[in-house]
């Protein structure tokens, strides 16, 4: 009887909300709020994979990582920092790395308000600072490591710090002067700079970090082997067809590439330097 009910539901044109098809998790490394774009990309990938691809959004990186670990998600676009964390046993495969401005690299920006009197990182003393996510490389790890390098303790330095769990909202928090400064993914900032220049115009980049491996797309290891390969193939060849090209253009990316996990060694070193016990 239950089976009959399910079959009846399946026959309906609008499927009920539930786990169906390929689950693709999204984190704040991209501007997740662009619903129309992700619907289009989902349709594109569904076609390429021959299976429906559903994008799944969660507030924090940690939630996405947990869903990957429990198998709720098949793929996710995550940050390099959670990627370099130790997993026993390893349950992730590196599927593809986006290529941004010619390389699979990005930076961390420390931004302040356009009219702010802050001229250097030292000026951040006693200010309000916005991190994006405690598991973010560019929005947490890099600024803290940068400050530590110039012998400033981030926890003692700021009057208040808070997490926005979203790079785009970090830009907003600084633009609205809720925070005096914030750490943001350079890719997100540049993306917003193109799509919402009025917002980024209210901010100023105080500090640019060195480059790091771009937030990668990972797949669950031990799942359907074929699907990981199919996804990699679909992503790596996106730039070869017009539809994929236009999608990449909307993402402000050149394409996707296949890289070794060593691409994220700099992040690993950084985490190690900040004595993150979860990093090998």
């Amino acid at each position: 009887m239950l089976a009959a009910t399910l079959a009846g539901l399946a026959a309906m044109p609008l499927p009920a909300i539930g786990r169906e098809g390929v689950q693709f998790g999204l984190t704040a490394v991209v501007v997740r709020e662009n619903i129309a774009f992700f619907e289009r990309w989902g349709r594109y990938l569904s076609e390429r994979l021959g299976r429906p691809v559903i994008f799944v959004r969660r507030r924090s990186y940690r939630e996405i990582m947990e869903l990957l670990e429990t198998g709720e998600l098949d793929f996710a676009w995550i940050c390099g920092y959670p990627f370099v964390r130790r997993r026993e046993p390893e349950y992730l495969d590196l599927v593809a790395v986006p290529i941004f401005e010619g390389a699979p690299l990005y930076r961390s920006y420390v931004i302040v308000h356009r009219d702010s009197t802050i001229r250097s990182l030292e000026d951040l003393k006693g200010k309000v600072f916005a991190y994006s996510d405690p598991d973010s490389n560019s929005g947490y790890l890099v600024p803290r490591a940068t400050l530590a390098r110039i012998r400033l303790s981030p926890d003692a330095l700021f009057r208040i710090s808070f997490f926005t769990y979203n790079h785009a909202e970090t830009v907003e928090a600084v633009a609205n002067r809720v925070a005096d400064a914030g750490a943001v993914d350079s890719y997100v900032w540049e993306y917003l700079h193109r799509t919402n220049p009025a917002l980024t115009a209210r901010t100023r980049i105080l500090h640019r970090s060195e480059t790091f491996g771009f937030p990668p797309i990972v797949g669950r290891r031990g799942g359907d082997k074929g699907i990981n390969a199919a996804m990699r193939a679909a992503l790596l060849t996106m730039h070869e067809d017009a539809d994929g090209k236009s999608l990449l253009a909307q993402l402000a990316l050149d394409g996707f590439g296949a890289y070794e996990p060593s691409l994220f060694d700099e992040i690993r070193q950084l985490a190690r330097r900040l004595s993150d016990p979860a990093v090998r």
Partner: peptide, 13 residues
């Protein structure tokens, strides 16, 4: 803790 005019009313002060 929050203000609609954050520029004039800084957080935490």
């Amino acid at each position: 803790l929050a203000h609609l005019d954050p520029a004039a009313n800084p957080l935490g002060l």
